[in-house]
Design a protein around this nucleic acid. Sequence first.
DNA 1: GAATGCGATGAAGGAAAATTTCGTCCGGCG
DNA 2: CGCCGGACGAAATTTTCCTTCATCGCATTC
Lengths: 314, 314
Amino acid sequence: MKENFVRRPLRPRPVAVAPRPAPPEPGALAAKVRTMAPSMTRSMQRVAETVAADPAGCAALTVTGLAERTGTSEATVVRTARLLGYPGYRDLRLALAGLAAQQASGAAPAVTADISVDDPLSEVVSKLAQDERQTLTDTAGALDLAQLEATVSALASARRIDVYGIGASSLVAQDLAQKLLRIGLVAHAHSDPHLAVTNAVQLRTGDVAVAITHSGRTVDVIEPLQAAFDHGATTVAITGRPDGEVTQYADHVLTTSTARESELRPAAMSSRTSQLLVIDCLFIGVAQRTYESAAPALHASYEALAHRHSPRLR
Amino acid sequence: MKENFVRRPLRPRPVAVAPRPAPPEPGALAAKVRTMAPSMTRSMQRVAETVAADPAGCAALTVTGLAERTGTSEATVVRTARLLGYPGYRDLRLALAGLAAQQASGAAPAVTADISVDDPLSEVVSKLAQDERQTLTDTAGALDLAQLEATVSALASARRIDVYGIGASSLVAQDLAQKLLRIGLVAHAHSDPHLAVTNAVQLRTGDVAVAITHSGRTVDVIEPLQAAFDHGATTVAITGRPDGEVTQYADHVLTTSTARESELRPAAMSSRTSQLLVIDCLFIGVAQRTYESAAPALHASYEALAHRHSPRLR
DNA sequence: GAATGCGATGAAGGAAAATTTCGTCCGGCG
DNA sequence: CGCCGGACGAAATTTTCCTTCATCGCATTC
């Protein structure tokens, strides 16, 4: 056939065509289409326009598909891609996918609107996640590190730790107690106010009592904290209201953030997130300070759980 | 009406074949990788990690190229793509290009460093908050809305709802039950496995059982769910392992995200965040659907609490 | 310790997509 | 009217992707 005609090496991957003026920019594709339009043939224009109009849709098409959709041939599609600065259709398609993703992500601005009764579920999920993220940011930003540090120290060296929480906060209290237990500390969560008080009076100097209440004025939580306070224990309040009554009996106050609450999203929801972040910080802080004993304890409790799981999973 | 004791066919073990809705999500790919990682083979993990670590680079590679780069075979690459929910490598590659574009446009610095023993407290706080935010994003992105919808419907019309959770998940279970109770549904959380089974056999068609387990193979939770399943109740699994044993007995599966866990930050921590987001979504969904009765119930419970607070603030 | 089964893995062949080649067709111009 | 140049697409060719199947390693069982 032809011999003196040097067959161009078939698309050595990274090498570009003759000129290198067109780095495949994803964003400025529409502009490129307009710029190049005049120098295109009719069929190519059709292809270019289709592509610019619906990047997402076209990204899903094969050469053949796009050729069909634009009423042209595969060769034309490839030629168009080349003209737009890509080595071939494959790469144009990749750029198209990128463009589509950008458009999609840009089209979803953070809507911090309230969740309403007729929001579709998808909306609920994203709003909720957004709200929680906001709560976390707020809480982390507002946390008083000195107070946190002091609380951690107190916890790490406590002979005994009592945690008080009622209602939604009760779960947080239990979570804290569970975690501390797991690293070998003596911690207990009380949700029965009477028992809580009964136990609180057992506390002494060096022990720690933690009260968790969003409102800062839950009497069932304040009372045991006061009892502990009166008996010389180190007391900590985790609350959304640093001016609440509970802080009167607290040596250290850790403030949780207070998000807007709405009818469908009661305060309990965001306060919980906030409280959990705080106790997680406490936990890790304590684990760091007692690492020598915490690490083996953590492993031990992990081992202990292993056999409670069904044996084989793949 | 069917018999009370109907042994329903086991849900076919979720095979490698992508779950039906297979939403090739562009952004939540890193999350998906983490969620699926445990159920992957070594080679597949290598591929998944490579891909998650360098989307842009990998998008430029062909199957063969990626296989070579990860030291595996083409077949493995394709299998991994399938596992991640794409029809084939081509589509994964497209998603990768999209992801790369998003990242390039300054969207995601998705790198979170581990918390180490000698991090100062300020560091701990910000890393923790960052991790939790990431977990929320991942969870929201990976949530299967159809399953969520189905679960919400089932819950809203349930005669009775049982929730099973052990250990850290027990708190989440309680939280869900508490919330549902508050809007007038009959919900109960069980953390005693024996009682849970005892109660589970009381469930009938139309009732709902929810199992919460991060590992997906906590026998104490699976057993009651199975009992409920066998008795015709609608069963729901909230788990981080969509391929776990628990899903065999679940009509609906809600997947929670799986963050990297480190020594100081056990899996329990991020799984909890993830689980809570899911149940909050369930709660709000149910509240929306039963708004007529939920709203007064919400107000009523709010009123009931008021007098438990100390009278004046400040 | 051998036998057995199960699943992971990659090689090779087959299907599909992309790219190139090449001939046809259309419109303008001498 | 015939020639020319370029646009265009059908088909050939190459690359890429996917599937099938045999092998291999691992672990469990007898």
